[in-house]
Amino acid sequence: MSNTDEKLTANAAIAQVLDEGTKLDPNLLVITCDSRGSAGLVQFTNAHPDRTVEMGIAEQNAVTVAAGLAHGGKHPFVFSPASFLAMRSIEQVKVDVAFNKTNVKLVGISGGNSYTWLGNTHHSLNDVAITRAIPDLEVYQPCDKYQVKALFKYLINSNKPAYIRIGKRKLDNVYHEDFNFVPGKATMIKEGKDVCLISTGETLFFTLQAAKKLESDGISAAVVDLGSIKPLDTEMISRLAQEFDNIITVEEHDVINGIGSAVASIAAQYAHAKVNILGFPDKPAIQGTQDEVLAYYGLDSEGIANSVKKVLSK
């Protein structure tokens, strides 16, 4: 028996849900681009060859063919490194998936900086920016195995196109087994009164750690999970922008047009909260392990805590 608190990668959690999904949905398919290993889907594809379509190293065609398969009644989940799926294939995502409103789920694996030493060609620091700019495309970035599982249960039942960005690390648990995923709903994970921190995906846990560190310095930080990037919880962000003097967003993404921009565009309507965006700068990223790089850009728990203190001391 596995320990229910055991940490899982997003890949492993997804594979479990999709395996169960094959029993619920006779049309569920997994589309791979010579990427079944990276996606943690070898066990799935071995168990379900009839639910697997291999497209080879051809991400553009994989997205287009998935749109055709969806038109033919199938429910494809396309897996490819986020850097290729969200950028090389973006016109296919826009035209074939979004314009046609085909039921295609695009899973960008190894997102952010998670490919570490493989370098900038393999990192995905602009995928949220470009996918959230496409009409009718939902965008999600789950933070732990419970959210991954709840999100993918929703995705199996949804007929809307979506892009989901995941990373590679074993995820610390933020939620519990009973977590219920609702698209367009942000979650207040920790209450606080001095500052509001908003994050998504793998950096959410570091943000939570930062908030705990800040408690010992007498700073009460609220932490909000923005796992649903689009649809965006504009109601909650509007409320936060009126309640707090400072909102600080944290993401493993370029500072341009990620969740920081999404939050700022809502908060700007209230001319009250200042929004500071923590992310990767608008230049090629430095190379290192994911932890080294996140620390370098101040996106580990210590860096986030320091940024919060700096903002509040202004």
Binding site: V53, N61, T64, V65, A67, G68, L69, G72
Partner: peptide, 15 residues
């Protein structure tokens, strides 16, 4: 784009 869409539709029909 059309040929890839056709591949998807034809593959779904086979399945």
């Amino acid at each position: 784009h059309g040929l890839g869409l056709g591949v998807g539709v034809a593959l779904a029909a086979k399945m």
